[in-house]
Amino acid sequence: MQKFTDNLAEEATLINQVKNGKEDALKKLYIRYQPLVNSIINKYYLRCYDKQDWEQDALFICYQSAISYVDGKGKFASYYKTRLTNHAKTLVRYENAYRRRALTQSISIEKAVASGLRPLQVNQVSPSEVPLNDQLAEIIDHLSDLEGLALLVVLGIVPQEEVLANLKIEKKSLIRAKSRLAQKMRYHLL
């Protein structure tokens, strides 16, 4: 019990020192609530915020909380946690509102038709500069014999059992060849 009252007295002293402009008291008070700050950081994810941004905001909110804290109106820990949580929720709301901005600027198809707007003409041409059949021919030229047979198996032209029996290989080798084939296709086509 004595230790708890000592902690409260030390906390009150630190808060008063922060109100009087002592920077080292603010650092001590902030370090005291570092686990609370870490729990808030882990609870709320923001894409553009890293740990340093969170810690800077938490230190600033700790300072503001110490300045505005009124002794006897509850615990400082609860007050600080509430302010820090509210700040995190505000940041999350702001980020979500930014994402929804495009939705607020859109209109329904019915409204567009009623207004006389026409849909944009979408170009149906493949984005690649080289025609697909030329790319496939180049890929097939660079395949090993086993990878070529794996392609025929994948396309359903040749049964897998026939390839395994004719080449006298294990199923594992054919699976690896299919994997290499997929990698080469992805590399060349994407």
Rank of each mutant, 00 (worst) to 15 (best):
A102D: 15
V122E: 10
A150E: 00
D134Y: 08
Y80N: 06
V125R: 13
L91G: 01
E138A: 13
I140L: 07
S108W: 04
Y94H: 13
I107L: 06
A97I: 10
L103C: 09
E110K: 14
L117A: 03
A102T: 11
R83V: 06
L149S: 02
A77V: 11
L91K: 15
E138L: 09
G74P: 04
E110L: 09
R99M: 13
K81Y: 13
Y98D: 14
L149H: 09
Q105H: 08
L91C: 13
R93V: 03
K89W: 05
A150T: 02
L136V: 10
Y98P: 00
V122S: 08
V122A: 07
N123Q: 07
K75V: 02
T90L: 10
L152I: 04
A112Q: 10
V153T: 09
S106I: 07
E138R: 13
D134K: 10
Y79T: 07
V130F: 05
S78A: 12
S78G: 11
L143Y: 00
Q105K: 15
N96W: 03
I140S: 10
G74T: 02
A97P: 00
A97W: 06
V92F: 11
K81G: 05
L84S: 08
E110G: 09
S115W: 12
S108A: 11
L152K: 13
A114F: 09
A112T: 00
R118A: 07
A102L: 11
S144T: 15
A102F: 10
P131Y: 00
L146A: 05
E95L: 05
L120S: 07
E110W: 03
A88E: 02
K81F: 12
V92R: 14
E129S: 15
L117W: 10
H142I: 00
I107E: 13
R83C: 06
A112V: 01
N86K: 13
A114Q: 14
G148W: 07
E147A: 01
P131N: 03
A88L: 04
G116C: 04
I107D: 06
T82V: 12
S115V: 00
G116Y: 02
L146I: 13
L132G: 00
K81E: 15
L146D: 06
D145R: 11
R99Q: 12
P119N: 03
D145M: 09
A114H: 07
L120H: 08
D134N: 10
Y94V: 12
N133D: 14
E129Q: 12
F76L: 05
E95A: 13
T85E: 05
K89F: 09
T104A: 14
L146V: 05
L143D: 01
I140T: 11
R83F: 05
A150N: 04
